[in-house]
Design a protein around this nucleic acid. Structure first.
Lengths: 207, 207
DNA sequence: GGGTACATGTAATCAGTTACATGATTTA
DNA sequence: TAAATCATGTAACTGATTACATGTACCC
């Protein structure tokens, strides 16, 4: 594969790009389908998207010279992508430039809550109940995830693996911890909202 | 304004649509610029977007018959949008169908943290420090917002206003409360991550 | 009277989503 | 062997973003 002058400049990379790049750097060569599964088991709960992007994004990255595509011969002729030196560099640069993006709490339910007064007490109350329930469920999912991670680790005999340090494991598990914190806080928050609304009795809607 | 058969079916509405619809329903006729300011002072901190959408989205909604456009005569010829009966209905429907969308914590910094192990301890440490600081700052902003809201209310003599009940005010202030909860939790989280990383000493990067 | 901050838009682009479609494996 | 389910994609569409551009009012 000769270096192509058109590809020497890295095009603007999106969060999705970095996510894919990071996963391939971490786990080695992956097919789109493997990426899909990996995401579902790891970052999927705080950063997910349709699987189709996992077919298009690696291709884009390969065109930019950050991934390399190896097509399987025979069988399903899967496309398997591995990271290139330039890909590693790009990932390193991204990691060395901490995001300054304001981390918005883009939660549709919160938006509905903001306007819930216009819809009457019943709607507000239903919203709070549904959200409390939903957050409880996600909390349960996180608990399962935690157990699975622990089990996986025990199974592999606690061996850290040569290419990976304690730091990496801690960082990944921290993201899961944040999930717990957020879900617990949300359960408490929506429960409180529910109580507050109930207290006010059945105010009519204004629409 | 005759009813146009092409407009009788409501097209799929996005979160942005509902946001605009809700603001107009709440505050009465608004220009795009007023919308911009209003958003900055209210939902902007958990749901923001470029101002250009506040020029295009109301037009879309007007085409769908959910808003009505009144063009100022003379001067700046501003477009001022008010809600129609159908708009109210659409908003009501939305409020009566609590969102089931999984509220993802789409935070770029969290994504960086997930991969931070690949970038070495220094990068991870810088990330944690930057995030802790950023969240502290947002906490301060929320405190100001709270003060301003309280001041506004005191100024208007505590009068609830005829068109609005206690419920609506509580719902809006609850969204701000969630902001507080989230920011406080984030400050604690990133501080903890910082400590953890420091503890591990300077692990080298793997890229 | 010229600078600068506020105000108001248009146009092009594209990442991300939705819809569709089909091949390969497993299972009943 | 029929029917699920898993796996793998393509193509079209469009909401959201980026880049650009101009007008208005105030202030030094």
């Amino acid at each position: 594969m000769v270096s192509n002058p058109h590809l020497t400049r890295t095009p603007p990379l999106t969060p999705t790009s970095h996510l894919v790049l990071g996963l391939v750097a971490w786990r080695g060569p992956l097919t789109p389908y493997e990426l899909k599964g990996l995401i579902a088991r790891t970052v999927g709960h705080f950063w997910s998207f349709p699987h189709t992007q996992l077919y298009t994004e690696p291709v884009r990255l390969a065109e930019a010279g950050l991934l390399r595509e190896q097509r399987e011969q025979g069988g399903r002729r899967r496309r398997r992508f591995s990271i290139t030196e330039r890909g590693r560099e790009a990932l390193g640069e991204w990691l060395r430039a901490p995001s300054t993006e304001p981390p918005e709490l883009r939660d549709l339910a919160l938006l509905q809550l903001f306007f819930a007064g216009l819809g009457g007490a019943d709607a507000a109350s239903a919203l709070a109940a549904a959200q409390e329930q939903a957050h409880r469920e996600r909390l349960a999912v996180y608990e399962q995830t935690e157990e699975r991670v622990a089990a996986d680790r025990a199974e592999r005999g606690e061996a850290p693996g040569p290419t990976e340090g304690e730091l990496a494991r801690r960082c990944r598990s921290a993201t899961l911890r944040m999930g717990f914190i957020y879900e617990r806080a949300s359960v408490a928050f929506w429960a409180e909202v529910g109580r507050e609304v109930a207290e006010l009795g059945g105010e009519r809607d204004l629409l």
